[in-house]
């Protein structure tokens, strides 16, 4: 059982969490072509190496971001989503 460090709750068994997939920037809906949009929805990089992922701590309903090396399954860093998404949309 891996340990994941939740920014709110500290180290916990990874069974308390749900992975929400890679952090991907949403393209501007109005400007993106159909192909770009489809790629955003369905195309996943699935790269080897350090990847930013969404993780959800179920007991506190808390989303945060983890950087994980997909090659070694080592979790490099976790931090609140506000570090990446700090601005309100227009």
């Amino acid at each position: 059982m891996k340990i994941l460090h939740c920014p709110l709750n500290g180290p916990r068994n990874i069974s308390e969490f749900v992975c929400g997939g890679e952090v991907v920037e949403m393209p501007e809906a109005g400007a993106a072509t159909d192909g770009e949009w489809a790629d955003y929805v369905f195309g996943h990089e699935n790269a080897r190496g350090a990847v930013r992922e969404w993780w959800f701590h179920v007991p506190t309903a808390y989303w945060f971001i983890a950087e994980r090396d997909t090659g070694t399954d080592e979790i490099l860093r976790t931090y609140p989503a506000s570090e990446v998404f700090g601005r309100r949309p227009p």
């Binding site: 749900v18 929400g20 959800f56 309903a61 989303w63 989503a81 998404f85 700090g86 309100r88 949309p89």
Partner: peptide
Amino acid sequence: VHREMLWHNAQWRLDVDIAN
């Protein structure tokens, strides 16, 4: 639904509280 809402608002950062 609750999870999706929280996930979207973690990005949108609208001034709302979302409680299940």
